[in-house]
Simulated assay, not measured.
Amino acid sequence: MKTPKKKTAENFIKDIRRNTRRIFSSEQKIQIVMEALRAEMSVAELCRKYSINESQFYKWNKEFLEAGKKRLAGDVTREATSDEVSELKKENQSLKVMIADLVLRYDIVKKSLDMLD
């Protein structure tokens, strides 16, 4: 039988940090990277200001620059969000129904014209 693992103060603090981790929006990440590009303060100061790790900042910075490089190179493809995909699927289904209705109407008109001849 296993005995429950004792929580040390260090583990307790790590758990609190894990559970209260801040989630930054893409706009916030861009703002932080742009602030660093203005070079008004060092990266270390900026990271302290926003309570982020320097490695996290450099990851955001690299992603930001790579996205800009792709865009400038003409790579304008992007991944659609799930909302966009579901909206396109609904529109596609609606268009299919409209086409089916038009084909049926066409067949009816064609048959009625054939009967007149």
Rank of each mutant, 00 (worst) to 15 (best):
R48E: 06
Y106L: 09
I13N: 10
D114E: 15
K29L: 07
E87K: 14
Q93V: 02
E54A: 12
G68A: 08
S51P: 01
S25N: 04
S26F: 05
I23D: 09
D107E: 12
M41G: 03
Q31F: 07
L95G: 01
K62E: 09
E40L: 14
R38G: 01
D83K: 15
A36E: 05
F57K: 03
D15T: 05
Q28L: 00
A39F: 01
S26Q: 12
S42P: 03
K89T: 01
R18I: 05
N53Y: 10
L104E: 15
E40F: 11
I108V: 09
K49M: 02
S82I: 02
L65I: 11
L72P: 04
E87C: 03
K59F: 02
I23W: 10
M34T: 00
M41Q: 15
Y50N: 12
V43F: 08
L95Q: 09
K70P: 03
V97D: 14
S94E: 07
A100P: 03
N61L: 06
T3Q: 01
M1R: 03
M41L: 12
Q31R: 11
T77N: 15
L102W: 08
C47P: 14
S42L: 04
I52H: 06
E79S: 13
V85P: 05
L65D: 08
I13E: 13
V33N: 09
T20K: 12
L113P: 01
D101G: 00
G74M: 06
K69F: 04
R22N: 00
D83G: 14
N11E: 12
M34D: 10
S112N: 14
L72Y: 09
S94H: 03
K111R: 12
L102P: 00
K90D: 07
L37N: 12
K69L: 09
L104F: 06
S86N: 08
W60I: 00
W60Y: 08
R78P: 07
K7V: 02
A9M: 03
E63S: 11
E84G: 08
D15H: 00
F57Y: 11
T77P: 06
F24G: 03
Q56W: 04
R71C: 07
F64Y: 13
N11R: 00
K59Y: 10
